[in-house]
């Protein structure tokens, strides 16, 4: 399998706090890669560096064979990196369908002149946006709420709508920041099926998640962060047995235990 993303020695600090120290990891094409760690370990900071919300203080990303200029989120999106947010960030006063249509923005071209004249090319593009957005709503399973305002959707539906919006940017790498947070068992199960489907359809997935059952069942490989450092990168079964990971989560293990 070829490499999709290579992070090399990513550093990020906020004043005296070292949020990330020399984090390197490699994500292969077509895998589901998990990023776990205790609270405050730097997982979301890593996401923000990758998607251009933060500029790393050191190191860099190689995405799809090309260096990633991680200084503007829209550039990352144009390159094919889409994300969702830990605290859902939908366009609340727009309908679910419109939210996904906004996601199509980066892959479409119509400008002011096209918008005003509504020439055949613009109309065709607009029709394609609508069709694709409806498909995506179906895909994530919120098609029946298409015309409701995003803010009025249930929590689980909002999470899935955010995934649909991210998918509308036609990403090569989909970054999900705690997608299962606040979901019940049944919803988490549906989410698992959805993420597996996304991978099957050819999109690589990077996942931050605290639900260990989900992570261990879903991910091909995992990286564990603790205090901004990568302490382990391996397949789930190996990570579960790793001494440093257990220490990070449960505290120091006595020698004679």
């Amino acid at each position: 399998m070829s490499t999709l993303l290579e992070a090399r020695d990513i550093c990020k600090h906020f004043g005296g706090v070292k949020a990330l120290t020399d984090v390197s990891l490699t994500i292969r094409q077509g895998e589901i890669y998990g990023l776990i760690g205790p609270n405050g370990a730097g997982k979301t900071t890593f996401f923000n560096c990758l998607t251009g919300l933060y500029v790393p203080d050191g190191g860099g990303f190689l995405f799809d064979g090309q260096p990633l200029q991680a200084d503007a989120p829209q550039k990352a999106a144009a390159r094919g990196i889409a994300r969702t947010f830990q605290n859902i960030r939908l366009f609340g006063q727009m309908s679910a369908l419109e939210n996904v249509m906004v996601g199509c923005h980066v892959r479409t071209r119509a400008g002011v002149i096209g918008a005003i004249l509504r020439n055949p090319a613009t109309r065709a593009e607009e029709a394609a946006i609508l069709r694709r957005s409806e498909e995506l709503l179906h895909y994530v399973g919120v098609a029946d709420r298409a015309h409701d305002l995003a803010r009025n959707l249930s929590y689980g539906d909002q999470r899935r709508l955010e995934i649909a919006r991210a998918l509308a940017t036609e990403p090569k790498l989909l970054c999900l920041d705690e997608p299962a947070a606040g979901m019940n068992g049944a919803e988490t199960e549906e989410l698992k099926v959805l993420i597996e489907g996304i991978r099957r359809d050819g999109t690589t997935v990077l996942l931050i998640e605290h639900d260990m059952k989900l992570v261990m069942n879903l991910c091909d490989r995992l990286a564990v962060l603790d205090y901004g450092q990568k302490i382990c990168e391996d397949v789930p079964t190996a990570v579960q047995k790793d001494r440093r990971v257990i220490e990070a989560y449960l505290g120091e293990v006595p020698e004679d235990a």
Binding site: P73, G92, V102, G103, A115, E126
Partner: peptide, 24 residues
Amino acid sequence: SRIGRAWQAIREDEIAAKAVGINT
């Protein structure tokens, strides 16, 4: 239009708008 939706998205949540690739 596509432009109008992008404006509305910026109005609603600028960071999310950037994240979906809108050149704000």
